[in-house]
Each structure stands twice: as C-alpha cells, then as structure tokens.
Nucleic acid binder design. Sequence first.
RNA 1: GCGCGGUUAGCUCAAUUGGUAGAGCGUCACAUUGACGUUGUGAAUGUUAUAGGUUCAAGUCCUAUACCGCGCACCA
Length: 699
Amino acid sequence: MPEKFLKPYDSTATESRIYAEWEKSGLFNPDECVKQGVTKADAPTYSIVLPPPNVTGRLHMGHALMLAVEDIFVRFKRMQGFRTLWVPGTDHAAIATQSVVEKQIKKDEGKNRHDLGREELLKRIETFAAESHDTIIGQLKTMGASLDWSREAFTLDETRTRAVRKVFKEMYDAGLIYRGLRIVNWDPKGQTTISDDEIVYQEEKSTFYYLKYGPFTIGTARPETKFGDKYVVMHPNDSRYADWKDGQKIDLEWINGPITATVVKDESIDMEFGTGVMTITPWHSIVDFDIAERHELDKEQIIDERGKLLPIAGEFVGMKIVEARAKIVEKLRVKGLLEKEESYVHNIATAERTGGIIEPQIKLQWFVDVNKEVIGRGKTLKEMVIEPMRSGAIKIVPEYFEKTYFHWVENLRDWCISRQIWYGHRVPVWYKGDDISVGIEPKEEGWMQDEDTLDTWFSSGLWTFSTLGWPEQTDDLKNYHPTDLLETGYDILPFWVMRMILMTEFTLNTIPFKTVYLHGLVRDAQGRKMSKSLGNNLDPLEITAKFGADAARMALIVGNTPGTDMRMSEDKIKGYKHFANKLWNVARFVLSQERTGEMRADLKAEFDALIVGVTNDIEEFRTYMAAEKLYHYVWHRFADEIIEESKNKAEYGATLYYILENSLKLLHPFMPFVTEEIYQSMPYKETGFLMTAPWPVVE
RNA sequence: GCGCGGUUAGCUCAAUUGGUAGAGCGUCACAUUGACGUUGUGAAUGUUAUAGGUUCAAGUCCUAUACCGCGCACCA
C-alpha cells in the first residue's frame, strides 16, 4: 500500500497535480482520445459548449455549480465511450465589462469615457478583460472542469467576429435587420440604449396629478413631459365622451400658454383608469408612441439624452426632470390647472448596470424584426423559436420551464441590437453619403463605419456554432452540432436560450442543442441571494482551497434539483470533505487486503443494481439522486457493513476490490480528483487514467 | 392583470411519474486504542398547508382556499 494512504486525504496538494497530469495527457480533447486508443474513431459524439463567463472579474458559486453539472455529464459520457467535447470560452459582455472599467476609471482618475476617447478606453477595457480572462481560466481548472483548451473561444475574437458579420449581413439581406427611428429604452446615466431584458423595475411612491386640459381632466405621474401634448385620447366606446369626435380640434390654455389640441379615439385606452382620458407624449412613452404610429401623429422630443428639458419647456429649459417637476406642478397650481393630487405606487424602469432611470426616447437604431416572414422559410423568427420547443426537438429540464419560455416568446417584440457603447462588435455597416455597405468593409476611401456596437447577446446567440468554427464548414461543426446539452441558469432562459435558438434556426436551419438543463440560484444558508453588499459570498477559490473541489462539487450537486434555488453553507461542503476522506480510508483498507477469494454473488448483484440506478439517474438528469445514492452506498453500506463484515476474512478480497474499483468509476464524474488519485494506486488498472476508464456496464 | 413554482421530520431537501413517507445536518442515549483526527450502533420527531373530489390505493391526479417565492405585462 502506498505511503500516501497513511495520512488523511490532502485535497490541496492532490487536485492541482492531478489536473496538470490530465491536461498534459491531452485527453480532454476527443481527437486525442481517439489517437491514444481510449475512444473509438467511429464512436457517437457528445458535446456541450460552456456558457461563456463574462470577463468582468471572477467566478462565483453559480459558475461553480454550472461547472460541476456540466463536468458530470461530460465525464460520464467520455467514460461511456462517446467522443466527448466540451468547448471553453469567455464572453466580452459588452456593457457589463465597459461599465465595470468606466466605474473604476471614474473612481481612480475622475475621468469619464469621453475624457479618454474611444481608442484609449478600449485599450483599458482590453487590458482588464485579459486579466479577468486569466483569473477565470484558472478558476475553471481549479474546479476540475475537463474542457478542451485547444478549442478555447472568445465572443469577440477573430473567428467570432467573422460569424457576427456574416449573420448580420444575412439577416439584413433577408430584410430581418432594419434601421429605424423607433422608441427605445434610453439610459441617461450609461448614455446608451438598452434592451427590455436589461431593465429592472423598482417600486416607487410618487404623486399622481389630475390636470385640467380644456374641457377634460387628465391624469399623469409625469407633468414634466406634458409641454408638447397636443393630442387628447379616449376610448371610442366611452359614453362619457361620446360627444367628442375623432379629429376634433379644441383650443385650450396649457402650461406655457394657449394651444390647439386634437381629439383622438383609440381602443388601447383603459376606461377604468383615472378619468379615462389622457394626453400623449409619443417621444417618451412606448404606449404613446404606438398610439401616435397608429394615427400618424406628430412626435416631439421634450427631454434630451442627459435627462434635461429642451427649449419646448420654455422657462424650464435645461432643468433636470426631477427638479423641474415640482416647479411645473407649482405653475400649474398657480394657473388653476391642477385639480387634485393623489399618492400612488408605481414601478419605475431602471438600467440593470448603471441604475439610471430609463427615459424612453425615439432614436435611430438597428432592430431585428421578429414578426416578418423569413423568405423561403414560410415563418417568422418568432415562430422559429417556438417550433422546436413545441415539437419536442428541444426539451427543457425541468419541463415546466417550457411554459415560461412560451409565455416569454409571446411577448417578444422587435429586438433592438444597437448600443451606444464602445466595447463590443461594432455594427458592421459602413456609410458614404447615401450609400450603405453591410457586412463588408469597402476598400475605397471615405466610408465611415457605424458608431454603435451590437448587443452582447447578438454574438452569444451564435455561440454553439461560432465556437465550432462557423462560417467555415469545419469537421467540428459536422461532428458536434447540434450540441447535446445546454446547461445554464434559469434566469437567462429568455435572453440567451431563446436567442441561440433564433440565431441557429435562422442561420443553420437547425437547433443549437437538444436539451436545456436549467440550474437554480445558489443562495446562502439563510436563503438570501449572495451579494457583495451583504458580504455573504462564498468564493469558489477559497472554498476549494479549504475543502477541495471534490467537496465543493458534491455539496453543489446533492439535494439540488434542476430549476430550483439551493442553499449553500460551509458546513455542507465540510461534510463532503469528510466523505472524500472516508473514501480515502476505504481505499486504504481495501488496498491493505489481498485480492483473493471468490466474488460474493449477492454483493455483486447488489452493486450492479447500484450501477444501473446511478447510470439511469445521470441519463435522466437526476444528478442529485445519483450523487446521494453513491454517498449513501459507499459510506453506510460498503464501509459500515460490508467492510466491517469482511474483517479478518480473506475470502472477501476479490469482492472488496470489485466494489472499490467500480465505486471509483461511478463517483468519478462527481469527485474526479480523489477518485483519480486512488485509482492511480490500484494494483490493476485498465487504462492510464480513471478519467478515460470504461463506465461500468451490467450484462 | 396574465402566468409559473412551492408548502413533506427541528433545519435543508428527496420520494425514479398512483403502490408500505425517506436522506443529510441537527438532537438524545450507548459504544469505540488499528481503515477512519473526519468513527460506529441505536432512538425520537409526520393527520405530507387546509377543505372537498376521483380511485382498490393519493405526498403524487382534479377543484377550491390560504400563505410564500418568482417571471411577464401595464402603470396616462
């Protein structure tokens, strides 16, 4: 028996050494597995593409969970003999990364991005991104992730840029990408548009004002936008206003003097709300914009990009909206136009990254049209993202999230893909006078590229196939796409999962993956979200240093059903550190015995049932149950009972070795390090590494 | 407003799709000088949120109610 077994299991010393050996062997790469004869050249493939972590710093426990789950499936399939590929990569995460760096520069040097200029800011972001990248790669390895590093990708590298440009051009040529003057979510703090998904609603107590508007009383929470309101809208079926005709003109006294208003009848008005009459501000309200579009009404900007009032506000010009509001209300009161005030609670839209209060604005932006029929395909993009889910070509684990998915897709509107930030894929469009070139940069002088960049989800939407080399028709693409599994957090089901399906259906006319496995949030022991401000973060690096990656992985897997949030505590992880040591001692005992005697048929049958159970559990995505079964068997059956019975009885030898060896195999996807380390000391080995040993099969 | 999920032992969660409610942690008692600093044996705790229904059989299916959490939309 090797001397190392005389001491308790030391995860720290073992894990980094073992990972280096695996990496050196090249066996994370399926081609190398074939070359070294551990995988058959014609074996079926299994592939996962890693959801790329943002290069915004370091990984958290949610990432650790993602890695644990994916590595379990990858190691399981590799041992089963599949040509198994797990592609690593990172995400430039445009707005998230830029705002982290901008905040830092603001703090250190008191400068904003315009002080630095585009080129200098990009240089700074790239330096930061490179550092984050290295930190993250180190963390991925610490967790034991068996990723094929020879295929690493970045959402903003050269290959991915080619893919982005090609897809953009194809969508543009198909008439699905258009540039239009449309109302968008403008973040005055971040100075950029953001998508609907990047908005966080916050409850706020505010005042609701009833104002006299000629013969009507209108309700509003935002008197500061009302300067330009010259349309008064009501429901066509509202009997209270039946005498007023659509298009009728009314002269009335308004904030800054007399105006002429026009009556508009529109069915979107809620007769129950307020007085059933409202005026509209199409430039700064999505609903009002839609009404204005339907009736072809004028639109006028009231508030500028920095959140200040424009000259139309008269004496209030240049004021910030918050301070202007009180003064405008006061003026309305003096003029006798303020009828009454009520307090009410509503949700204000804020930008997820900057906290800025969203001000809708009409801007010239690029959009993806989700409701237009795609030529030659007979359906819209929206239909394309519904279909594979309906037909069962893609299934979600847990299944009930499919309902959430459909609910979300039904509310899908045209996707605004341009951003006024600098870090990211620049919109691949060049202008020269009235000429426009899409997707390809013209060689001649005088062409200017669009200033904007693309929403980060545009490039991540291509992730499953851009990582495999598309637009080249690579072998990887042929062999590994569609991928088998997408494993990610349920919180990005709509943003990312839906967009990958959209992009892949459009570009390749196929699905990006067959199964979507959604994990939940990792919370602290009290069930609170982990956050910097609460200081309840568990840092995966600290955890692995203290308890080992094997223990962290088990703690993340046991008792954690897909789609459900879980609670994590150091105590739980400690428990599995103990388990790693228990396994270590089991090995110590077995290795001290002679491998003699007949196999005990009853014990073998019992173990074989475990093999079948665990295999089925993993195949059917019940990793939490497989892990628990193994824990229970190894500790309370094998160690407590079988080994106890066997003491001083030489005829158990062969049985003990059988159980140990196969327990190591079954446990390997869950606890790769300690199992590999023990396997290396087994007197009989089928292969160099447990990692590529054959998965146990019951005849 | 529309939708989704949850409610099971003191705590955290399971229950392989309708077949005797189980694990981990915690608690209590006992044991333990050689595989185990991280050990073992045993014990207690359940009207499965509530009320009905279907069924030979319900934690599981149906209806309603209550509470908790979440998503989406709206918010003049």
